[in-house]
Computed example of a mutant assay.
Amino acid sequence: MNFDELTRFLEKRVQLPMPGDAAHQKMKPVLANGAPLKLKHSTQPRKGGVLILLYEDSGIVRFPLIQRPNYEGIHSGQMALPGGRYEEEDQDQFQTALRESNEEIGVDQRKVEIIGSLSEFFVAASNYLVLPVIGKIDFKPKFVPEPREVHDVVTPPIRHLVDPVRLKEKEIIVRNGFKLHCPYFDLEGRTVWGATAMMLSEMVEILKEFEGN
């Protein structure tokens, strides 16, 4: 994929209706018996933002994913897009995504050009309403993981999202002991599943449109 052509396409595409939930459902985990996973919360969801940061590296368009450290939390050890929860100091969820990416992997938010966003996504497991922000940067960043929040950073080519060989399924046992049947992306040897895979699934549909042009 050509970086300039892709980012120009995305700048126009984000102004149009998004694939939304239809895309999300393609990567949604279900219980091992095939039943849908239902989670209820008694409080309103908090807002958050994550960043899909596109950059070029030797002619290849890449984006960073982080691996969370192991901790006593629902997303322990999982792969994710850099980002986090909205704070009062943030102007909006776009600012949240930039600030959190700066804190987690050292991305200079002043150098990131915002392209737009995908559909806002409800992360049922943690009760967050997350905006996946698409940004671009015109050089290869040097990522500096914040060790309390990030165990590792991987930078797969964006085209791997539309490579059918990298779309797989397996059983995953989550923290509460439930066995889930999970579609996932195999990216750089890592299992990208759950909310992150569902958000990226919308990006997949848009990338397919781009490749069809």
Rank of each mutant, 00 (worst) to 15 (best):
E5A: 15
L6K: 06
R8E: 14
L10V: 01
E11M: 04
K12W: 11
R13P: 05
Q15R: 15
M18C: 09
P19E: 03
D21T: 09
H24W: 14
P29S: 10
P29I: 07
V30K: 06
L31R: 14
A35F: 12
P36Y: 08
K38D: 09
K40V: 13
H41G: 10
T43M: 11
P45N: 05
K47A: 13
G48Y: 00
G49R: 01
L53V: 08
L54H: 01
S58W: 10
G59L: 03
V61A: 09
I66F: 06
Q67L: 14
Q67R: 15
P69N: 14
P69K: 10
P69T: 14
Y71P: 00
Y71F: 15
I74C: 07
H75K: 12
Q78T: 06
A80F: 06
L81M: 09
P82A: 04
G84S: 05
R85V: 07
Y86I: 05
Y86A: 00
Y86D: 01
E87K: 13
D92P: 08
D92N: 15
D92C: 09
Q93P: 06
Q93V: 07
Q93A: 09
F94I: 15
Q95H: 14
T96C: 12
S101K: 00
E103Q: 11
G106Y: 09
D108T: 03
K111M: 13
K111W: 08
V112F: 04
I114M: 08
G116E: 09
G116T: 07
V123N: 12
V123P: 00
S126M: 10
S126A: 14
S126Q: 12
L131E: 05
V133G: 00
K136E: 03
I137S: 01
F139A: 05
F139Q: 07
P141F: 05
F143I: 02
F143P: 02
V144P: 01
P147N: 06
R148H: 10
E149L: 15
D152C: 08
V154R: 03
V154F: 10
V154N: 03
P157G: 14
P157I: 08
V162Q: 01
V162T: 13
D163L: 12
D163W: 08
R166T: 09
R166G: 05
L167N: 06
L167S: 10
I172M: 02
I172G: 00
I173L: 04
V174Y: 07
N176P: 07
K179D: 09
H181Q: 15
H181W: 12
Y184S: 03
D186I: 04
L187Y: 03
E188C: 14
E188H: 13
E188S: 14
G189T: 11
R190Q: 14
T191G: 04
T191H: 07
V192S: 02
A195Q: 04
M198G: 04
M198R: 13
M199W: 01
M199T: 01
L200T: 04
L200A: 05
L200F: 06
S201T: 10
E202N: 06
M203E: 03
V204C: 10
E205G: 11
I206C: 02
I206W: 02
F210T: 01
F210M: 01
